[in-house]
Design a protein around this nucleic acid. Sequence first.
DNA 1: ATTAGGCGATTTTTT
DNA 2: ATCGCCTAAT
Length: 735
Amino acid sequence: MSFLNQVNLKQLEAIKSAQGPVIVVAGPGSGKTRVLTYRIAHLINIGVPAYQVLALTFTNKAANEMKERITKIVGEKSKHLWMGTFHSIFARLLRIECEKIGYGRNFSIYDTQDSVALIKSIMSSLGISTQQYNPQAVRSRISWAKNHLVAPEEYLEQATDFSEEKTGKIFIEYRKKLKQNNAMDFDDLLLKPIELLTGHKKILESYQDRFRFILIDEYQDTNRAQYVLIKLLADKYRNICVVGDDAQSIYAFRGADIRNILDFERDYPEVKIIRLEQNYRSTKTILSAADGLIKKNIDQIPKNLWTENDEGGKIILLECEDDADEGQSIVSSIYTESHRHKFQFKDFAIMYRTNAQSRSLEDALRKNSIPYTIIGGVEFYQRKEVKDILAYLRVLVNPNDDECFLRIVNFPSRGLGDVALQNLKKFAEAKSPNLLCAAGMAGDIGGVTPRARTSFNTLASLFKKYLKLKGEISISELARALVDEIGILHLLKEEGTPEAMSRWENVQELLSAITEFTDKTQEATLENFLQDVALVSSVDKWDDKFNAVTLMTLHSAKGLEFPVVFIAGLEEGLLPFYNSNIDRKDLEEERRLFYVGMTRAMKILFLSHARLRFRFGELSYQTPSQFLDEIDETLLDKVKHTRKSIPADAIGMKISSPRRKKIKSDSSYFSDEMPDYESSSANELQMGTIVEHDVFGRGKVLHVAGRGDSLKAVIDFNSVGRKNLMLKYAQLKIV
DNA sequence: ATTAGGCGATTTTTT
DNA sequence: ATCGCCTAAT
């Protein structure tokens, strides 16, 4: 067991305490992933069958990486290990068992957008104004209630004001509709297993016997429902190991509950507590600045973090004029550091509080031809055209899904409006199990125009045809045929605008994604594809092999590390974020969020703030974040940056003392002249060039045509074959 | 009855 | 960028 030589004593203890409950309090960079990986490998090595191990991680990406490492140590024995996020693991379990609680195995999974759409339609049928009551707010209240295991009736009973009462009524209807649509929202993926296990003793026992060893990563971010679920499963054998750090708890807004750590000690009094306090990631400077900051929080478990790493350089604070200037100054620093220390682009990460901040940063990176990737933001699978095509597929899988049906009933336009749909709904309520079925009986619906009648019938027979085809051809063929038949690509091409072309590309990309899934998945069913799509997180999709600067929110940064980290927008109102009064607890969560960001940095940490920034559509004056005052001054170097149109030396850079000389001597520190990085724009594409596409992977250029914005190339991709791409939209990298 | 097009408001963080 | 809401046109 040579791998056990590579850990310190505390880590070893955490790895080897196989029996009984264990809490590992793991500071940032303390080798927590290593502990989890080795712990599982150790379990398997001492003879525990892998199928008896259940490991819950925060992202699927982390799960896959850990699983790979485990397989390297123990080999094929790891095959039947269940490892993944709470949501994907329990979705998998529900696919097997959900019939026992009255759901069909083909149930749909609703994302937040789907839930809001359903809530909107419920509100309008209950005659509740969506102006007066924000459907998003209603959704988050309902979600809060579900995460805290409050049933709709109970919620309604406890309502203290008019608006809560309304929410309660919507909640009751919402639950009913979900069931009727054979659909579950994200919260249901945790609640329904609880319902299943508490209601069926035999099933509970079989899963308790199956999952004898349970591990949970990022335990500080689990909510009440997750806690109850795990308590049920672990109750018999009590071999449960949770790993977390209260200082990194940043998901209270979605129900993460600090009580889970405290109650753990109450529920398992025999618990063994192990602290991992040695940091292997960051420099002494970064660790000590972060540690000093987090000590301002009242709510915390005291820790004694330390590192044997180098002192490292000071933390650099870039003081900027506005958001564009902030971007420019970060880009300049990337340039300087990458030359000074031979960093690659992928060694840099830029983090921020809100997704909206990415725009000005992207502008600066693009202007200087620095390749970048964004984690999160407006996601591919959230794009309207993509969701529309997916909605067709979802109805094929689950014809009871009225919400999805409504999404596409008039897409592409079939001349069906509000009135026709009201009639259809009314008819369906009395005479049909779902809207699709009702559309097939259009002849019997009263008050509908002949045009609408025809449209309903055509749509119904389209689905009839593909429902039959579904069992006969592969899902990639099915999707392609369906997309052809509804003619969406054709329509977009005809439209011809840049927006339409980008939509056209997205539809193509979706088809390619389905093809790729078909090729590399053993059980390539539509059900499985849709489930994957519903449950991938933005971090899961991130390709860390790609040599590019990574942009992401501080929330997405959890669990990651980079040699150089920039945290942008350290301004009051933004970080800490507030729009109205925030209380101490909220402020402390913001502080933890900043702490998470700081502790992602291995070698160099940059912070930045701007004096002026566009917020909510107007230019506003920003004051530096109070958190900056909480960082030990001796660890900080302030660097003023001004508008790039003014040469830096003309106005005199103000740089606080000890580092001044060093920076001044480096004349290129604020240089606006960027070196010629290999441009990511495709102007120099020639036949035979090997390029890389975000989705299609590597390919060879066969032909180039057009000029300017309409420059196109035929590329033979290794994975998906020939594609004709508009270079303006296809982000190609020359390899 | 339905659709297209214009306009304004909206963005905290996410499975 | 997307959504809801308005108006004018069909």
